[in-house]
Computed example of a mutant assay.
Amino acid sequence: MTSRGAVIGVLMLLLAACGAGGATPENTAPRPGGTGDWRLVLRDDFDGSRLDTGRWATCYDWNEDGCTISSNNELEWYQPGQVTVDGGKLTLTAQRRDVRASDGKVYPWVSGMISTGRDDWYAEPRHTFTYGYFEAAIRIPPQGGMAPEFWMMPASRYTPPEIDIMEFLGNTRRVSMFVHWLNDEGEERKQRGIYTADGFPDGYHVFALLWEKDKLVWFVDGVERFRVTEPERIPHVPMEVIINLAVGLPYTPHPDTDLARMYVDWVRVWQR
């Protein structure tokens, strides 16, 4: 863990111990590293000078010289040059720059993302996970109109199900936490949790999810903020981990905004 990550870990433990922010032993984040039945299956501290492409792809599974999610009407086209590693952190940079994409459209922004998935539709995913404890220390950009996200998509490449560990949808104060599923009639459904606070762009915050067979529990800085236990809503399929900086979802950035950066200090995945 980097020195920044170590400080965050200590602060989380102090927060839980002191009961700050409404934390109690029942609603604080588990400590997988301190128990024998958890094992660390993915760890990246971003300590080098380049992205570890053995762990991470820089597009979705439908990569064709870049990618986006066109059904969301997002403004960005993801490109690997917008992903950098330096100084013990990963940086995803969104820039206002027109790019003609392989889908024939012109996108007004380029941005960066990482995924444990494939390099293209026909390859195998790098890493997939069914259940576990997922956490990342992330500093979001201060600009409005951005959508920094930390989420999970099925290895089948089709959603739902989907788990959104963290989304800031166009704002910098409100964390959205979602689970998406199909009901018995095959209709798409979703449930949302919200946690609002100031100061997210000012430093790193730890966003985490405990995914087990009978529950989904979301944590922000070590404190539980959302829980889902209804059986039909819990996914039971292998998933890829994704961190991305979308643009214009759902709000367009201010015309004076030309640049935004999202930083990731570390990522961890634990499994029993």
Rank of each mutant, 00 (worst) to 15 (best):
R225E: 14
V264H: 02
W266T: 01
N244D: 10
D198M: 04
A208P: 10
D214Q: 13
W211D: 14
L249V: 10
G193L: 09
V269E: 01
R261W: 03
V237W: 12
Q191E: 15
Y195S: 12
I243A: 15
L259Q: 14
G203S: 09
D265L: 02
R261M: 10
I234T: 05
T252A: 10
Y263G: 03
V241T: 13
A246I: 05
E212T: 11
H236L: 05
V241F: 01
G222Q: 04
G203P: 00
H205R: 05
Y263W: 14
D202N: 13
I242P: 11
P201W: 15
W266V: 05
D258V: 11
E240S: 12
T229D: 13
V220G: 02
W266S: 06
D198W: 01
D265F: 04
D198I: 00
E232R: 00
R225A: 15
A260M: 11
R261G: 03
Y263A: 12
R268H: 13
T196W: 08
L209A: 10
F219W: 12
P201T: 07
D214V: 12
D258E: 15
T252V: 13
H254G: 01
P235K: 02
A197K: 01
R227C: 06
N244P: 03
L245C: 02
R192E: 15
L216Q: 07
D221T: 01
P255C: 03
K213Y: 12
P235D: 05
M262C: 06
W218F: 13
N244L: 04
K215Q: 09
D202W: 13
L210N: 07
L216D: 06
V267R: 11
E224H: 08
M262A: 03
D202L: 15
A208N: 10
